[in-house]
């Protein structure tokens, strides 16, 4: 039963991620006084794309063709080693913070390569910007986890969550600072405002979409889905590491129900925050992005100072 649930938990990421994007879009629409599409619209989009024929650039190599699988698989792999609902899954031993960061970097790597592969000018620029942002985001991401790891005395994500649950109150300030730092990175890594506009295909602004420009049909679907997965993974990390309340320690139906509900609530709150930000601030000029990312890094360093 437990193992079965663990596997189910892994599947939760890909299954629920389109919903999250749908919810965010819906919330954004509400903020903008629109009605907006259904929260299930992303599922329909994926379904539609999966059934379309596909055009691949003649210049593309196997990197371009394989990249969607790799990017998607990477999000699955990351999803498998982070605490979702249960703190005691079989994957817990693999859930090291560096492993999570560097495995997700594989996805970025192939995504950027795929952007370069077709020789389109847009793809190249998208890759360049994506790599710039993710290179600068890495410090903030790693250090925000590090703050937690120092608090918890362990770099294992499950242990971190567990430990913050019990000792977090003593270190509220650093954790909040690190949480803000993490949230900035979340926005950067997933191409949200103010880093990127996930909704446009405008040459001047796009980062993520530029890399996907040559994709169509089922590969595009996979890429979009992977992006949604990634967002969900990051939100989960934020929700479960910085605010680990409600995670299930020992398996029981009651605890499970409570954990799921609390988890969904936290995710919903994060969706709200993202939607709020995306509706209230404009996208930043590219060369101002490093400033925000360095803010994230600095916040985390301050947080470390507060711990010691």
């Amino acid at each position: 039963m437990h193992t079965f649930f663990d596997i189910l938990q892994i599947l939760l990421i890909p299954l629920a991620s389109p919903l999250i994007t749908g919810v965010i879009k819906k919330l954004k629409a509400k903020f903008q006084n629109r009605r907006g599409a259904s929260v299930f619209q992303p599922y329909r989009d994926l379904w539609k794309l999966f059934h379309k024929d596909e055009v691949i650039s003649q210049d593309a190599s196997w990197i371009f063709r394989l990249a969607p699988c790799i990017v998607f698989a990477v999000t699955l792999a990351v999803g498998a080693i982070i605490p979702l609902i249960d703190l005691a899954t079989f994957a817990a031993p693999a859930g090291d913070l560096l492993t999570v960061i560097y495995i997700s970097a594989i996805g970025t790597f192939f995504l950027a390569l795929a952007g370069l592969d077709t020789g389109s000018a847009f793809g190249g620029f998208g890759s360049s910007r994506e790599m710039t942002v993710s290179a600068l985001a890495e410090g903030g991401l790693l250090f925000s986890f590090l703050v937690l790891a120092l608090v918890a005395g362990s770099a294992n994500l499950f242990s971190i969550a567990d430990s913050i649950l019990t000792t977090g109150n003593f270190y509220l300030q650093p954790i909040v600072l690190a949480g803000i730092g993490f949230f900035i990175v979340l926005l950067a890594e997933n191409g949200r405002f103010p880093f990127d506009n996930p909704a446009t295909h405008l040459e001047l602004t796009m980062i993520h979409e530029a890399m996907l420009l040559e994709y169509s049909g089922r590969r595009l679907a996979l890429m979009e889905w992977a992006a949604a997965n990634k967002l969900f993974v990051f939100m989960t990390l934020g929700a479960n590491l910085f605010f680990p309340w409600g995670l299930m320690h020992t398996f029981s139906p009651g605890a499970l129900a409570a954990a799921v509900v609390i988890f969904l609530l936290k995710i919903a709150a994060l969706c709200l925050a993202i939607a709020f930000i995306e509706s209230t601030i404009a996208k930043f000029r590219f060369f101002r992005l490093p400033d925000i990312l360095f803010v994230s890094f600095t916040l985390n360093i301050v947080a470390i100072g507060l711990i010691k």
Partner: peptide
């Protein structure tokens, strides 16, 4: 992070497109 960017560039410039 920068090394990753650099090798995307190196591999991309040499082998892709």
């Amino acid at each position: 992070g920068l090394a990753l960017a650099c090798f995307v560039k190196a591999f991309g410039a040499v082998f892709l497109a």
